[in-house]
Design a protein around this nucleic acid. Structure first.
Lengths: 149, 149
DNA sequence: CAGTTGTCTTGACTAATTCAAGATAAGGAA
DNA sequence: TTCCTTATCTTGAATTAGTCAAGACAACTG
């Protein structure tokens, strides 16, 4: 681990701590894994974490992700048809672009201008707290190639 | 069944037939069930269908819903945290308002004006085909009452 | 450095959905 | 109308994603 990594680790640890959670190797590893794959499933995070910390269980990863999610350290998204994905980019109400060919997920900033997405034409008396937008389409490589699984 | 119902059944049957599918009692029952509960889970549709056609299996309902979905007769939505829901309102790219208190789902017409929701700020090279917007909030009754499960 | 409390491991369990094989019924042809 | 073909439905098992619970263990507090 380089000095930069050490600093990064320190920052991550502070983040975890200031969320009122204990800092553990598994938790740091989960955050690292999400830095590598910004939209990873629990299974995928587990694979990454397990590579570095072989004793880690899948349930631990589910537990860490649940704790982080409720602490607001990570955000959980559930594109239709896929398992839940987790990302570290939180607090900015951004949206997602999902490739129907290869399931790749990319972030997109909030739609046109401010947050028109927060104002449905008719809220039917609901107190709208948030809006989630998912754009479905083909990513650049799937547009050209027939199919890239 | 009244004359009106008979006409409705006829219309439903035509819809099924023109989608290239065979008309069966189960399929009509599924469409009726979705008319009653416009955002129903497979389990809920099954309950309704089974009430009228006791021999019907849950798998048949899953099969019918899958066939209808791929034929474009019904639309499948998957709000995060819930099972898949099915609705008969198709072809108009409308969106949904989901109550975080009681899980009620309501339709909302496309956001502000035309379809700004189809234009992400930066599409990152994707060929965007559709956009799905989910508004999360509290429905009128959950706004007043503490919790209505 | 020891105690307390939160976290992790192990293992079982549930919910939602899918797959497969055979029985059955719908729609077209004779 | 009756038969034939093919789609659909039934039964039963399997899979995937995720949750729950009990005890072992490790992180922070004092």
């Amino acid at each position: 681990m380089t000095a930069t990594d050490a600093t990064a680790t320190h920052t991550l640890a502070d983040g975890i701590r200031s969320a009122g959670l204990k800092v553990t190797a598994q938790r740091l590893a989960v955050l690292y894994a999400l830095a590598d794959s910004p939209h990873a499933s629990a299974e995928r995070v587990f694979a990454a974490v397990h590579a570095g910390l072989p004793g880690t269980s899948l349930q631990a990863v589910y537990g860490v992700l649940a704790a982080f999610t409720s602490a607001g350290l990570v955000r959980r998204i559930e594109p239709a048809g896929s398992a839940a994905l987790f990302e570290r980019r939180v607090g900015d109400n951004h949206h997602h672009l999902v490739c129907t060919g290869c399931d790749a997920v990319h972030d997109v900033d909030c739609v046109v201008g401010e947050a028109p997405c927060l104002t449905p034409a008719d809220a039917r008396g609901f107190a709208v707290a948030s809006a989630e937008v998912t754009f479905w389409g083909l990513c650049p490589s799937c547009r050209t190639e027939p199919a890239t699984p």
